[in-house]
Design a protein around this nucleic acid. Sequence first.
DNA 1: CTATGTCCCTGGACCACAAGAGTTG
DNA 2: GCCAACTCTTGTGGTCCAGGGACAT
Length: 392
Amino acid sequence: MGFMCDFCAEQRSVVYCRSDAASLCLSCDRNVHSANALSRRHSRTLVCERCNSQPAFVRCIEEKISLCPNCDWKGHGGSSSGSTSGSTHKRQAVNCYSGCPSAAELQTIWSFFLEIPSAGDPAQEVVMGSMSINECPGDDNHKERIRDGSLIVSNDIKLHSAHEPAGSTYVPSPMVSFSGAKGPTLCEDDSFYESFNMDEVDLSIENYNEIFGDAFDSSGKLFGNDGIDDIFGMEISGADSNGQDAHVTEGSTGCAKGVQPACSTAASGDSMMSCKTEPTVCFARQAHSSLSFSGLTGESNAGDYQDCGASSLLLMGEPPWYPPCPDSSLPSSSRSSAVMRYKEKKKTRKFEKKVRYASRKARADVRKRVKGRFVKAGDAYDYDPLTHTRSC
DNA sequence: CTATGTCCCTGGACCACAAGAGTTG
DNA sequence: GCCAACTCTTGTGGTCCAGGGACAT
């Protein structure tokens, strides 16, 4: 079941949308994420072909399989199984994207795209192949879209280095554009800075209130991570396994200084730190004037990134702040719909509980209880879920 | 404006035990 | 390497309760 699209449940899932926490087939991905401007910003990547439940971050060239950090970790070294044969496998970073890419664009993003079995599915190929770039407003061609941000491709090098087993080889994808954070180990790489050009993104703080709007309460606190995620499709993850903070240095952006006060002030709220299901994320204004995301400790492992639901990709690819148009930074209708969607999602998520084992749930659903606690079989009980009655 | 009391909401703990995961021979 | 047997760990839901925020006095 985990192989199937969460939306249509007919096609095999190919991509994973973090914002929706859903695995989708290509056609549904297209349909769902072309619905409106907000959904188009959802960052998607391939779904792990091993566990089929997590977003892939790397593709093993040898095995021709996309893997999430956990499965990559298990399969390519560091696992308790002691398997080291896979550690020499060449792996290719799996980029994230947003927008409504065509099959050709996905081929550009993922050079191995046609290797993916489901992507080669004629039914899905028809859908993807028929995608017109013009179906997404403002699209001229994908390169242009990549450049102007409507189609965003991203990658995370830092995490790769964090989880890269000795002897393994990562082969960077033919990247079009990088955006996101970088680790200290990459600071020397000037080429990164060339790609990491945030000048294209207007991060001016003047409009932050308009942009963030209801995502902040009166004290300037964010309501929660969901707010960012929902409204911007932004995803934040913490430090790498070595406890290194991810940060965007001002020197590399030129525009980031406008962001820092907003983040350091607005995001300092406990709402950012109280989320149960996501890692503690803390924005801190560093002495060296950088935007810092810290939270995961040195004990964190690949699984932490997954379990917490946060992106394993630092800052992912999407620009945290969607490039606001000077004249109409964000249409009020879009904003209100974003806020509405955020509130709706928050409301839903509040009561949402992901059941991992249906069999256990089925059993728990019929177990007798005393004051809510399970009782031994045969013991007296005060609540029977089957009859919804109390025996005492 | 501050202190105190009350109400309400949120989240964690608790329970038994089958299923899943891991280990051993 | 494969399999069976065994041990250990995990997850499941309803209820209770402590803690904290909001509000009134």
